[in-house]
Nucleic acid binder design. Structure first.
Lengths: 330, 330
DNA sequence: ATGAAAGCGCTAACAC
DNA sequence: GTGTTAGCGCTTTCAT
C-alpha cells in the first residue's frame, strides 16, 4: 500500500504552537476546564494551518471506531432493499457524515433482535449507531458500553437520545383534511403492530374519528406494497361504502390505489387515498399522492450530528414537523 | 472515551499459531509467494478464532483510510438530494461496505470538477472512491496516489476499473419494443450532454430509427422531472403526431407524462412513454412505467467489492445487464 | 520465509 | 495545566 501525501498533523500544530502534542490534543478536544492562553494559541494555529484531525487515528486511539451504522429493524431484509425511505435516509446520513470525514454502513436486523446492540458494541470500527424503527426490547438490550453512542429514530427514552417527527400532528392533519373535504367513511390501513412509534397514527385516527362521531374502520398492514393491496381489498370487502383510505406509509397507499383501480373504483372520485412520508414517488406518478411530508434530510443530519458533533451536544429529544402535503389523490 | 470490549486480535492469532505478528499479518494478506505450513496454520487458526482484522488499525498502518466515498458528479447538489437512483445506489454500497466493516460517505461534485480526485487523494481517511457519472476531464485529473483506489460507474479506461450496465442493449430493447408494438413516430428526450456513458442511449436511438427508416426526433434533457416536462412539451410542439417518447431516465419520463396529461394526451393510448433505470416509483404509481431495469445492487456491490475485496481482484471492467421491463406506459 | 522493531496519528494515564 | 510515556492493532522495513 502506498504512502499518502502527508497532511498537517497534530504534531505539526503542537510544534508550531510551542506546546506538547498532548496539550494540543486537549485544546482541540476542549477537554478539561477553561481555556488558557496556550490552548487558545493551539486553536488559532490549528485553524491557520488548516488542521483536520485524522478520524482513523482518533478512532484507533480512542478505541471507538470510525463508522456509523444505520441499523434498520424489519421483518425481513426487504426492509432495506428497494425501500425509498431508507434510500433517502441513507443519502442524508452519508452526506452529513462526509462533513465529519466519517462513513456510514447499513444493516438490517430482525424486529426485536436483542442481540443487535450488544453485537454492535463488540464490533470494532463502530463509532456509533442510528437505530431505525426501534422497538422497546431492542432499546432495553442496550449494553453499557454503547451508552452515548446510539441515537434512535422514533421512540427514545431513558438516556437514549432520539429524533422523531410529530407524526401525531401530521396524521391528524391528513385525516382532518379528508373529513373537511367531505369524506365521511374513512378507513385506515394501520402500520405494523410491532413498531411502537407508529402507534401514534392509529391514535390520531381514533381521535379524529371520535371527534367526527364516525365509527372506526381499521385493518392491519405493514410497510410494503402488498399490505396496501390486501388492506384496500379488505376495506372494500368489509365496508363497500368507504370513501377514503388513510395508509400508514406511501408505499402502502400505492398498493391500495392499485387494488382500487382493479376494482373499478376511481381515485379520488369515489375514494380518496392518502399516504404518509412523502417519498419521491409520491410527487412523480400520473396521480400524485396526498401525504404527510417529513424532513428526512434534517432527521438524519441531526442524528449523525448527535453522534459526531461535539460531545455533550446531544439533545435528549429532537422533534421535527410532519406536514400535510395536498396533491391529487385526496 | 471508554475502552471497548476486546475482540480477537492479530496478536492472539499469531500466538495461537506459534508465529510472530508479522508472519501472521503476511499470511492473512497473502503477501509474498506461496504458502508455507506456517501460513496455512495461521489462516486456519484465524478462521477458527473468528478473527476479523480491525479496519481502523489496518488503515492507520497502511495510511489509506477507512471510508469509501461515493462521489456523484452533477450540475448542482440536487444530483444527490431526493434522487431515487442515488438512494438505491447508496443503500447497496452501504450494505456491501458493512460486510467489510467499512463505511461510505456521499459527496456531490460539479460536473468536470478537476479538483475532485486530487482533493480526495489528499484527504486522510479516504480509502477509496466510487465515481458516479464520470466525465473524461475528471478521469484525466486522477492523481497517481489514488491509482487502484478508484472505480468508475460508467466510462472507464486506461487503468481505471469500471462497472457499467449494457445500456446500449437496454435502450435498444426499449426502442425496439416501441416499434414492434406499432409506434411509428418515436421521439427521445436525451440524457445530459455532459455525461459520456449516456451517449450510448442516443446512439441506440439513432441506430434503431435508421433501421426502421424513421426520422430522428431528438430534444435535449437532463436527469430531473423538469427536463421531462419541458422535453415533452417541446416534442409535442415540434412534432404533434408523435406517438412514443423515450426518456433517458425514469424521472424524466414522469415529467413527460405530467406534461402529456396536462395536454390531454392519453398514455399509452395516444403516446407511449418509456423510461430508463427502473426506480422504485416506476412500479408504484397508478400508471406503471415501462423502462429498462438495472441491477443497482449488483453494480454498487461490485464497485465496493473491487475497492475492499482482496487486492488484485479488481476486474478492469464489469458489464451488467440492462433489461426491458414491460409495464403499462408503453 | 521469518522475527524484531519501528512506526501510522492520535488519546489517555500518569507524574509533575 | 502541562509534558512524558504508553499504547490502540495493524503493516512494513530491516536483519537474520
Amino acid at each position: 500500500m502506498e504512502r499518502r501525501r502527508t497532511a498537517v498533523t497534530l504534531e505539526d500544530v503542537a510544534r508550531a504552537a510551542g506546546v506538547s502534542r498532548a496539550t494540543a490534543s486537549r485544546a482541540l478536544l476542549e477537554d478539561g476546564p477553561g481555556s488558557t492562553p496556550a490552548r487558545a494559541r493551539v486553536r488559532a494555529v490549528a485553524e491557520g494551518m488548516g488542521f483536520r484531525p485524522d478520524p482513523t487515528a482518533r478512532a484507533l486511539a480512542g478505541g471507538a471506531g470510525t463508522r456509523v451504522v444505520i441499523a434498520v429493524l424489519g421483518e425481513s431484509r426487504a426492509a432495506i432493499e428497494n425501500c425509498e425511505y431508507v434510500g433517502r435516509a441513507l443519502s442524508a446520513a452519508a452526506s452529513a457524515a462526509d462533513r465529519h470525514g466519517v462513513g456510514v454502513s447499513l444493516r438490517w436486523a430482525p424486529v426485536h433482535d436483542r442481540g443487535l446492540l450488544p453485537g454492535l458494541a463488540a464490533e470494532r470500527g463502530v463509532h456509533g449507531v442510528v437505530l431505525v424503527n426501534t422497538t422497546w426490547p431492542v432499546l432495553e438490550s442496550m449494553p453499557a458500553d454503547l451508552r452515548g453512542r446510539v441515537v434512535s429514530i422514533g421512540i427514545g427514552g431513558g438516556d437514549m437520545p432520539s429524533v422523531d417527527v410529530d407524526s401525531l400532528a401530521g396524521s391528524t392533519a391528513v385525516l382532518r383534511h379528508m373529513c373537511a373535504s367531505g369524506r365521511r367513511r374513512v378507513a385506515m390501513i394501520q402500520p405494523p403492530a410491532w413498531l411502537p412509534c407508529a402507534r401514534r397514527l392509529t391514535l390520531a385516527y381514533r381521535h379524529v374519528m371520535a371527534g367526527e362521531g364516525r365509527p372506526e374502520r381499521l385493518v392491519a398492514g405493514g410497510f410494503d406494497l402488498d399490505s396496501g393491496r390486501r388492506g384496500a381489498a379488505e376495506v372494500m370487502a368489509r365496508w363497500p361504502d368507504t370513501d377514503a383510505i388513510f395508509a400508514a406509509c406511501d408505499e402502502v397507499a400505492f398498493g391500495a390505489m392499485a387494488t382500487l383501480r382493479s376494482l373499478g373504483v376511481r381515485v379520488p372520485g369515489d375514494v380518496a387515498v392518502a399516504g404518509f412520508d412523502d417519498v419521491p414517488a409520491a410527487a412523480l406518478g400520473p396521480l400524485s399522492l396526498t401525504t404527510a411530508s417529513h424532513p428526512v434530510e434534517r432527521i438524519y443530519a441531526a442524528a449523525v450530528e448527535a453522534l459526531l458533533g461535539s460531545p455533550g451536544a446531544m439533545a435528549p429529544r429532537t422533534l421535527l414537523p410532519s406536514e400535510l402535503v395536498l396533491r391529487e389523490s385526496a
